[in-house]
Design a protein around this nucleic acid. Structure first.
Lengths: 212, 212
DNA sequence: CGGAAACTTTTACCGAGTCAAACTTTGGGC
DNA sequence: GCCCAAAGTTTGACTCGGTAAAAGTTTCCG
């Protein structure tokens, strides 16, 4: 890590180049409308090399997953004593929002990303798969701590639902044209609402009357 | 519907034949190891016809989704007055279990199904997508009832998590070799535990102490 | 009975992804 | 500095899922 070496530096540069070229093309024209061969050519590299760095086409677009997973896992695993995972994650969401992090969902640069993502079934599928990986990581931590595998998986699933629903809500508003600053401000309450539901339960929402 | 007609009968027969042939091959050899061309040949039909009935290869295996979605939607939408969706779904899970329904997860015939499903990323992706469709359907019902889109999506997501986690837990035990009858008996408490978590919240599970 | 409509097949094609073999570049030991 | 081995890249051929269009077949209905 001190001296990466020429070889390693070249690799990272190539990887970054391919990723950037691909993301640019996807945002211009949509995920399905760009072929891997085209990306390879635009990056001045062979198709095989693209698959060398990114095993699936979808990974060209969703390449920040590993970081996100590591960060969320660390938030839960290394939470301060006296803080529940639910609280730790709630605070984490608030701080993502406050710092204007893309994964808060409430940033202006999001529309392109969201549009590309939602208009491709393949990308959506991969996106959901990544959510499952997050839930699985949480469940693993909880199981280590408690030994109760089922309850751990349940709580992990519920917490993951909060995280992803909060994100999707903000993104949805941004894409709908709402002002990013307004969304950001109102998102504070949204986060709390989501984690309150997980922490204290849904009760009898939305009431016990049948629809008709 | 009274008189299906020869044409319609043939169509249904063909559809069923293809589905059965495909499922058989999948369980014998695994999802990825069977090609669509092979299924078509084994069913005495052309590849195009297979895709005519099942738009994606995954639908050959996961072809009960539409029924499941309709059933769950109806459980929520047409719940009796005085019963919350959470309670309605909890009861539904109990009744699936009591009647030995495959979707309770606690049946002996499951291992083949579960093995095929879990050993294919493509199938898993489609499976998760179907869960999302269920959550979306719930959210739509709740939004109609309350007008609160965000809270509806949250609650829908949490309820869906309960359903799927309960199912996965039972299936996991069956595959691990546990006796189906034992699993079925113990699954009653599992269902209640899951829906209790959704209804009353996770609190500070798994405690507020950090791991290390 | 005859034709329109529905269903199936054929043929040709595209794009993702894999494989193996040839080729180029880098790095370490001498 | 030089050379070889290892790592990385390219090439080309291939498989498989999926689509499109056109040309059969079969069923339906007047």
């Amino acid at each position: 890590m001190a001296d990466p070496g020429l070889r390693e530096r070249k690799k990272q540069a190539t990887r970054l180049l391919i990723s950037n070229v691909a993301t640019g093309l996807f945002i211009q024209r949509g995920f399905e409308e760009v072929t891997v061969a085209e990306i390879a050519e635009a990056a001045g590299v062979s198709k095989m090399t693209v698959f060398n760095y990114f095993p699936r086409k979808e990974d060209l677009f969703l390449d920040r997953h590993a970081d996100r997973l590591a960060e969320l896992t660390s938030v839960v695993r290394s939470r301060p004593a006296g803080v529940s995972p639910c609280t730790a994650l709630r605070r984490h969401q608030h701080s993502l929002l406050a710092s204007g992090h893309p994964l808060s969902g409430a940033i202006a640069g999001g529309p392109g990303f969201w549009w590309v993502l939602t208009s491709s079934p393949a990308l959506m599928a991969r996106w959901y798969e990544q959510e499952r990986e997050i839930a699985a990581a949480f469940a693993e931590v909880f199981t280590e701590e408690t030994g109760d595998a089922f309850r751990s998986r349940m709580v992990a699933g519920l917490l993951t639902t909060a995280i992803t629903t909060v994100f999707a809500h903000a993104m949805g508003r941004i894409v709908a044209g709402d002002d990013a600053e307004v969304v950001r401000r109102e998102q504070v309450a949204v986060i709390d609402q989501a984690f309150d539901l997980v922490e204290r339960g849904v009760g009898d929402f939305p009431g016990t009357g049948a629809a008709s």
